[in-house]
């Protein structure tokens, strides 16, 4: 398989997971939340300064439809991380002149 094809499949899977399948993600507290609540450690927890930002919790504020809100949140997330990931790509790749091929 060409790396381009593998790359596109990886991107598609990520997009589907973030945009569509995440709707079926468990909404139960995660392991750390559960354990800290059990031990009474969560009493000191405060909301993050950006807790009511428009993308908090991977949804888009103001969109009533949960499925749509989650889809947009996931899609925006994949796009934002993708842009930052492109930055990693340019950082780690060997400069053209230095390529040994």
């Amino acid at each position: 398989m060409s790396s381009k094809k593998l790359f596109l499949i990886g991107l598609l899977v990520s997009f589907l997971v973030a945009g569509f399948f995440s709707f079926y993600s468990s909404s139960q507290p995660d392991g750390l939340q559960k354990a800290t609540a059990e031990q009474g450690l969560d009493l000191t927890v405060v909301d993050s300064a950006n807790a009511d930002s428009s993308l908090a919790n991977y949804g888009v504020a103001g969109i009533e439809n949960e499925r749509l809100s989650g889809f947009l949140g996931g899609a925006i997330g994949v796009a934002v991380v993708g842009i930052a990931g492109t930055g990693i790509y340019f950082w780690v790749r060997t400069p053209k002149s230095g390529e040994t091929k």
């Binding site: 990520s14 994949v78 991380v81 993708g82 930052a84």
Partner: peptide, 9 residues
């Protein structure tokens, strides 16, 4: 870059 997107998702 793809690994970042994949893990995020």
């Amino acid at each position: 870059g793809l690994v970042a997107v994949f893990i995020f998702a």
